[in-house]
Design a protein around this nucleic acid. Structure first.
Lengths: 236, 236
DNA sequence: CAACATGGTAAACGAACGTTCAGGCGGATG
DNA sequence: CATCCGCCTGAACGTTCGTTTACCATGTTG
C-alpha cells in the first residue's frame, strides 16, 4: 500500500525538503524564505513541496514539530526530560546542530504556538531541576522559585537566541564550542558566588519596592532597577 | 527654503509614517509588513512612503536609526551614556514605550548592522559599569571581565527580546511594570548571593575544562557540558 | 504674475510569490 | 499485459508586493 521507506526511514524526499526548509527558515526567516528556494535547495520542484506539505504554512508546521521533537527527544520522553540536557547536547556539537539551533532561536522569539510549547517544555524542565537541586541541598532556596526558574530558562536560551551577538562579541565568525568553553567558568562563578561584594543593592531595591508598591507615577528615578541589568548609581 | 516644522519639529507626516513603520515592523516583522499597511496606518498613500524614504529598505534604515537614537538618547550623548538607564527608563513605563521595545527586541535578533551597533553600545555601557563597580569595590573581580560583561548584557536584554514568553510565564497578557517588579528581587538575589549552596559545580567544571582544554577532535565525550546521550540521527 | 519647489495622490507596471493543473514516469497489483 | 497509484515535473494562474509614473494643489520666490 505504501512505500516502505516512507513509513520507517526518514531519508525520503519529504525529509530532504523539510531539512532544506529548516535550514532556510533558520537562516533567513520564514517570511523571507520562498517555497522556490526551499525546493531548489532540496533539488525538487516547487510543486512537490506543496504536494508533500499542502502549503507553505503546512511546511512551517512540519518544521516546527520536527525541531521541537529533535530538541526534546522523542515525544514520548517529553515529560521526563531535562531540557538543559538537550541544549548541552546541541552546544557540545554546535556545527552539526547549527540549522536546528538557528531555527529554534528564531522560533523562540516568534509568536507561534510551537514556540510557546518549546519554551514551556524547557521552563518545565528547569523548574523540575530547581526543585530537585533545592531538595538535594545543592541550590539555596530562591526567593521565588517560579520567577527564578523563568529567568534561569531565559539565561539558558539567550546564548542560543542571540548567538550572532555572542559570536561577534567573542571575536568569532559564529557560535563555536570554543566560545562556549570560554563562557562556562564566568557563568558558573556568577551562579555560585554572585557578583556583588555586598548586599547594598539588594537592600536598596527591597526598600524601594516597599515604597513604590502602590503607585507608579514618576518615572522611577529612585527605582533601583526594575530591569534585569544590574543596578548601579547611574546618576553619579 | 524649507518648511520650518520639518527642520525642527518632528510631528510631520514623515514622522507619522516612521512611527507607523516602527509600530508594524515591531509587531509583525519587517518582511511581513507591507508598505501599503504602513501607509494605511499613517493615513497616507503608499507612494508617499517611497517619496519620503526612497524605498522600503530606506524606511527600515530610518526606523533603525530612530529607535537606536531613542534608546541611547541623543546621538551626542552616545559615548557617555549608560544604556541600562535607557532600559530602565523604558521598562519603567512599558506601555508608552511598547512599540520601541517590540522593535528593538526584533532588531536585536536580526542581522542588521543597526542591531550590532545597538548591541555594541549596550555592551560598552555594561563594560564601563563593570569596570566602575569593580573599582568602587561594589562588584567582585570577575573571572573574565569581558565575558562577564557580555553575559550581563545578554541577561539584561533577554527579558526584552523574549518579552512574550516572560509575560506568558508570569500569567500576564503582555510585559508589564508589575511583572518587572516581581522579578527584581529574585534577580538581584542571584547577582548578590548566587544560587548554588556550594561550589561543587564550579570545581567540577574547572576540572572538566582542564581535561579537555586541548583537542576537540572527538565528539566531546568528556566535555564539561556533556550529556549522557550522544547526538542521534533520524533512526528511531 | 510667472516659475518653481514641496507635499501629496491615483493608477498602473513588472516582478515574484504561493498555489493549481494536467500530465509523465515507474513500480506494484490483478 | 493492462491497470492503477504514488511520486514528481513544467507551465501556468491569480494575487500581491515594491516601485514608477504622471499629475494635482499649494505657497514661496524672483
Amino acid at each position: 500500500m505504501l512505500n516502505m521507506r516512507l513509513v520507517e526511514g526518514d531519508l525520503t524526499t519529504r525529509a530532504r525538503i523539510r531539512d532544506a526548509a529548516v535550514h532556510l527558515f533558520g537562516r533567513e526567516g520564514f517570511a523571507a524564505t520562498t517555497v522556490r528556494a526551499v525546493a531548489a535547495l532540496a533539488g525538487v520542484s516547487p510543486a512537490l513541496v506543496v504536494h508533500h506539505f499542502e502549503s507553505k504554512d503546512g511546511l512551517r508546521l512540519a518544521c516546527d514539530e520536527y525541531v521541537v521533537n529533535q530538541f526534546l527527544g522523542r515525544k514520548d520522553e517529553l515529560a521526563n526530560g531535562d531540557p538543559s540536557v538537550a541544549i548541552q547536547r546541541w552546544l557540545a556539537d554546535v556545527d552539526a546542530y547549527r540549522p536546528l539551533i538557528d531555527y529554534s532561536a528564531r522560533m523562540l522569539t516568534s509568536n507561534s504556538p510551537a514556540a510557546d510549547e518549546l519554551f514551556d517544555a524547557i521552563l518545565a524542565g528547569t523548574s523540575t531541576m530547581v526543585d530537585e537541586q533545592v531538595a538535594a541541598g545543592i541550590m539555596r532556596e530562591p526567593l521565588d522559585r517560579s520567577v527564578t526558574a523563568l529567568f534561569l530558562t531565559l539565561y539558558g536560551v539567550v546564548p542560543l537566541v542571540m548567538h550572532r551577538q555572542v559570536a561577534r562579541s567573542l571575536g568569532m565568525e559564529q557560535l563555536s564550542a570554543d566560545g562556549i568553553r570560554r563562557s562556562t567558568m564566568p557563568i558558573l562563578d556568577l551562579y555560585t558566588h554572585g557578583l556583588y561584594a555586598d548586599d547594598r543593592f539588594l537592600v536598596a531595591a527591597q526598600e524601594a519596592l516597599a515604597r513604590t508598591s502602590g503607585p507608579r507615577s514618576d518615572k522611577g528615578e529612585n527605582n533601583p532597577n526594575q530591569d534585569p541589568d544590574p543596578p548601579h548609581g547611574a546618576r553619579s
